[in-house]
């Protein structure tokens, strides 16, 4: 077998440096990353990158910082698998590989001028944070902004400092709920769907953006449709196993759609008849 260097490869990453690491919860860390030889990542909210730890593997992680920041980007990583656990052992100054951004994110231009209902379950807040921060950075381009957040327990709450700030803002409505309260918890207890009926929006001019665990989607969508939000205005982002990001390896396929290229953000009308979607 002969070997030839490839000038173009769909699998080669950019060198990137971890410039800051912040522990968010027991299981989640926030990594601030700078591309070494390239300027901005230039992503859209909701897009993802392939993160390489050479010798261990490569995984898709959604970008969780605003595209308005061009000096760096942030990745929120939960330690669940081989690569993510190893990533948690990395230190400031360590190098990783980055490919991307990949996929179709939230269609922010289409969202402009509309009300937004952002619904995040657990780690789903990470990809939505790129949308939320983008919207807040361009706040006057949007109508009302609601954020509903649900997680298992108060200690699992991601970005708690930011949630607190968002809670204080007058140009954004925030409410959250937990599945199980701790003794010092004074907020809502229960599933996230219980928060939806109370939201004050004009359904016909509202876009909903939902990211959360697989089990959450059907319940939330049902509630949103009951509220009168049009199907094509319900935006969902899916988590799938991905190896290539190029629409080839086949793992992220939902029937005829490749999550990595056609998604990960879809509108409900696109996928409602696809049995393997939700």
């Amino acid at each position: 077998m002969e070997k030839m260097a490839l000038k173009y490869s769909s699998y080669k990453s950019e060198k990137a440096e971890i410039v800051d690491i912040k522990k968010l919860t027991e299981n989640e860390k926030l990594f601030r990353v700078v591309l070494k030889n390239k300027g901005s990542l230039d992503h859209e909210p909701g897009q993802f990158v392939m993160v390489s730890l050479y010798g261990i593997g490569e995984i898709p992680i959604s970008v969780c910082s605003s595209p308005m920041i061009s000096d760096y980007f942030e990745l929120c990583v939960r330690a669940v698998g081989k690569v993510t656990r190893s990533m948690h052992k990395l230190k400031k100054g360590d190098e990783i590989g980055i490919r991307g951004p990949y996929g179709k994110g939230f269609p922010v231009r289409i969202l402009e001028g509309n009300d937004l209902l952002i619904i995040a379950g657990g780690l789903g807040l990470a990809p939505l944070r790129s949308l939320i921060t983008y919207v807040l950075d361009n706040r006057r381009d949007f109508g009302k902004v609601h954020l509903l957040f649900g997680c298992k327990e108060p200690k699992d709450m991601l970005f708690s400092d930011e949630l607190e700030q968002w809670n204080k803002r007058t140009d954004m409505h925030y409410s959250c709920t937990v599945d199980r309260a701790s003794p010092d918890w004074a907020g809502n207890v229960g599933v996230i769907t219980t928060l939806i009926p109370g939201v004050d929006i004009e359904p016909s001019k509202t876009f909903a953006a939902i990211v959360g665990p697989p089990v959450m989607y059907n319940f939330v969508i049902k509630e949103l449709i009951a509220k009168g939000i049009p199907e094509q205005n319900i935006l969902l982002s899916f988590e799938r196993n991905m190896k290539c990001g190029n629409g080839k390896c086949g793992r992220c396929q939902i029937q005829n759609l490749y999550c990595c290229q056609d998604g990960p953000v879809f509108n409900y009308e696109q996928i409602k008849n696809l049995s393997e979607a939700i």
Binding site: M1, E2, K3, M4, A5, L6, S9, Y11, K12, S13, K15, Y54, G55, E95, G97
Partner: peptide, 25 residues
Amino acid sequence: PQNETLLEFNTGKKSNVEAFVEYEP
């Protein structure tokens, strides 16, 4: 090929990554 090298790399502080194609006429 069933097992095909895409990249070769050095680990450590000065990492170096090369993309390859393995072929055979």
